[in-house]
């Protein structure tokens, strides 16, 4: 239904997983200077209630476990935005032993914002981009997670004990 698609794009409830240095960018986007609420995006406390997951920085093995668990707790359709270069290719921690190089391998990501911690304007752009993608129906990365669930699980198993951490569907 077009109305639902419109509603989904206009009201995105965001849960930002504040790892790494990206978290500090979010308050300015929320507050009066940039005010992301006018796009219908408000921060929510629990994964159950949110549909947008922001990964705001590098992920280590320890935080990836929790990100995956949070991601799985979110109801579908859900979208992920990766902040900064660390989520794309590990950024400046490209050679560190415990940083996750490619976020793509573990959870499907709809949108990346490059820049070693993008400014609020870039974040607002990303949100508008995501809104268009939803309108056009392209933002269905979450279907990929469901279709090749085992592939993602295999990748995750290399990094942490999946048995304990992932939710039994």
């Amino acid at each position: 239904m077009k109305l639902f698609k419109f509603a989904q794009s206009r009201s995105l409830w965001m849960m930002h997983f504040c790892t790494g240095c990206g978290a500090v960018e979010l308050p300015p986007t929320m507050t009066s200077r940039f005010d992301m609420e006018r796009f219908g995006i408000i921060p929510m406390a629990t994964p159950r209630q949110s549909d947008l997951l922001l990964i705001t920085g590098y992920l280590t093995v320890k935080t990836l476990k929790r990100v995956v668990r949070a991601y799985e707790q979110m109801p579908t359709p859900r979208y992920v935005i990766g902040f900064g270069s660390c989520t794309i290719n590990g950024g400046m921690y490209w050679d560190s032993y415990n940083v996750i190089k490619k976020l793509e391998l573990y959870i499907p990501v709809d949108l990346y914002i490059n820049g070693c911690m993008p400014r609020p304007e870039a974040i607002i752009d990303a949100f508008l981009k995501l809104r268009e993608m939803i309108d056009k129906g392209e933002a269905n990365a979450w279907k990929k997670y469901i279709e090749n669930y085992e592939w993602y699980k295999k990748n995750q198993a290399e990094v942490f004990d999946v048995e304990k951490w992932s939710l039994k569907k």
Binding site: F6, A7, S32, E37
Partner: peptide, 27 residues
């Protein structure tokens, strides 16, 4: 929002929120 001198969402935003919530696939 206006008290915090920012624009704040359109007035019909909650209706959109409710529609979005009802459009959720599985909870």
């Amino acid at each position: 929002a206006h008290i915090q001198n920012r624009y704040g969402p359109p007035v019909y935003q909650p209706i959109l929120d409710v529609l979005k919530l009802f459009a959720k696939k599985d909870t």
